[in-house]
């Protein structure tokens, strides 16, 4: 057996090891119910509750943003993100949060928004001086 094969073999083994440990970095989307039981931070995906208060007052604290979100099971919880309010937040279709439950609030460390794409619901612009 060639030395290069031995080295390749060792690297392959290391690779498989890395792969297995890398897959620990992945998880699935959870729910608020699961978040209550979890110790470590988890990911939750859900929809913004548009009828509930969206609070952000940078005059008082630019790093405190709170809103309500419904998860995939329809459970609604208050979410607190200690960061700025992202742009176009109200337009988001899906919100993906990373964080954990503290008391009855979900404290998010990271938030990702999915917004409707630019062309989907576009209507044809009509020049303003013409009425149809």
């Amino acid at each position: 057996m060639k030395k290069i094969h031995i080295v390749s073999f060792i690297m392959l083994a290391a690779g498989i090891f890395l792969f297995i440990s890398a897959s620990k970095d992945t998880g699935t989307f959870h729910t608020f119910t699961q978040a209550l039981k979890s110790e470590s931070p988890i990911k939750i995906s859900g929809q913004l509750s548009k009828d509930k208060e969206i609070y952000y007052n940078p005059e008082k604290d630019p790093n405190y943003f709170s809103f309500f979100m419904k998860d995939s099971e329809g459970i609604e919880k208050q979410v607190v993100l200690l960061n700025k309010k992202p742009q176009d937040f109200e337009r988001s279709e899906t919100i993906v949060l990373t964080g954990n439950m503290v008391d009855d609030k979900f404290m998010a460390t990271d938030m990702l928004l999915k917004c409707p794409s630019k062309y989907k619901q576009e209507e044809i612009y009509v020049r303003s001086e013409v009425s149809l």
């Binding site: 790093n63 405190y64 200690l82 960061n83 964080g99 404290m107 460390t109």
Partner: peptide
Amino acid sequence: AELVNGLDLRKN
């Protein structure tokens, strides 16, 4: 500000 997991996340 409230701290999450001891992390200071105040960025703004």
